[in-house]
């Protein structure tokens, strides 16, 4: 077990280095003048100065290996340039936008995981019964519905027509409270801060604004989890040990929950990394539609305004985070499935 984890940990720097090289390779598609913006961490530097002097200073005409060494040094020190669209350094923008995205991601993770697993195993247990077909149609429509269509239709129905769930992160009243001096911003995650401040009005308002984006993210992500769980559950239900458990006279509920579902969850865990990537894709769209000022909306705006430092920084951040997510998945996998450890 330990050897396995150590072997996986040793691969980590290799893959992270690969990500950095890849982002660097993408940068080479740009001219030195365009790349300049990725090296400057302060826009004042770019004023009243000859660009050729700056290119010389940052060594952007140097041989490629020395450029890479410089870029690598910058990345390791968190110097990723100045983000025009956020009007602050890229690292500062991360810190500012992170809590908003984290709040959305954390609230969506729970319904996605629990809902996906529950629906998937329900569908398998009732294989080829009406509920199985309904669940599959539900999943396949979610899979076919682009995130931006789901989001817009949600707004159209629940805000335009019914007026229940408005876009934005907070209503006017709640946002005034959050900005006031009585409200302490511990984490930047509004729902958490509201609980810590014991302010239930803000908590309720934040929740109300979270319903639509969370449901949009969940609806388009459920399909994958549901499918994998269903397929693996169908296979597990046909195993000999499940038949044995039934033959022993165990209740069907116990057979499904304790004997079948636990084992069926192993393949589901392996796609957790993919789900994280899915969530990042979804955040770009949902934050743009629902006007949440988080990482995803920042990246979308950066793409629209050609804010390269922000884009490359975000790409790198996504890559590294997913590599870590996959590492955690692999370790969990080894912990749960003894066959992996013994290899």
């Amino acid at each position: 077990m330990l050897a396995y984890i150590i072997r996986r940990l040793l691969m980590l720097p290799v893959v992270v280095l690969g990500c950095i090289i890849l982002v660097f390779a993408v940068m080479q598609l740009l001219s030195p003048y365009e790349r300049l913006s990725i090296y400057c961490s302060n826009p004042a530097e770019l004023k009243n100065i000859d660009f050729d002097v700056l290119i010389e200073r940052y060594g952007l005409n140097d041989p490629i290996y020395s450029q890479f060494a410089d870029w690598f040094w910058n990345v390791m020190h968190g110097e990723l340039g100045w983000s025009q669209s956020a009007a602050r350094p890229v690292m500062g923008a991360f810190m500012r936008f992170m809590p908003v995205s984290a709040e959305l991601a954390l609230w969506s993770a729970l319904p996605i995981i629990l809902g996906g697993i529950w629906l998937g195993s329900l569908s398998a247990v009732k294989h080829n019964k009406p509920i199985d077909h309904i669940t599959r149609i539900f999943a396949i429509t979610g899979w076919s519905l682009p995130t931006f269509v789901a989001g817009l239709l949600g707004l159209f129905l629940f805000y335009g027509i019914l007026g229940w769930f408005p876009p934005g992160q907070l209503g006017l009243g709640a946002s005034a409270i959050v900005r006031s001096s009585q409200f302490v911003n511990y984490t930047g995650i509004i729902t958490l801060d509201a609980v810590l401040n014991w302010n239930w009005y803000v908590f309720g308002d934040a929740l109300r604004h979270l319903v639509l984006p969370v449901f949009t993210l969940a609806y388009v992500s459920w399909a994958l989890l549901l499918r994998v769980t269903r397929a693996s559950m169908l296979e597990t239900l046909r195993q000999d040990y499940v038949t044995t458990a039934r033959a022993k006279g165990l209740e069907e509920k116990v057979v499904i929950k304790k004997h079948a579902r636990r084992n069926a969850l192993i393949p589901t865990i392996t796609i957790a990394g993919v789900t994280v990537a899915f969530l990042f894709n979804g955040l770009v769209i949902t934050e743009t539609i629902f006007d949440f000022h988080g990482l995803g909306r920042w990246a979308a705006r950066a793409a629209q305004t050609f804010d390269l430092p922000a884009l490359l920084g975000y790409l790198l951040f996504n890559g590294v985070l997913i590599v870590f997510a996959n590492l955690i998945v692999d370790v969990m996998y080894a912990y749960i499935d003894p066959r992996v450890r013994l290899e």
């Binding site: 893959v15 690969g18 990500c19 890849l22 993408v26 990537a277 899915f278 990042f280 894709n281 770009v284 769209i285 990246a299 979308a300 793409a303 884009l311 490359l312 975000y314 790409l315 996504n318 890559g319 590294v320 997913i322 590599v323 996959n326």
Partner: peptide, 10 residues
């Protein structure tokens, strides 16, 4: 390691 949409966008 790169999310499809984000990577394609960049």
């Amino acid at each position: 390691a790169f999310p499809f949409l984000v990577g394609a966008m960049v």
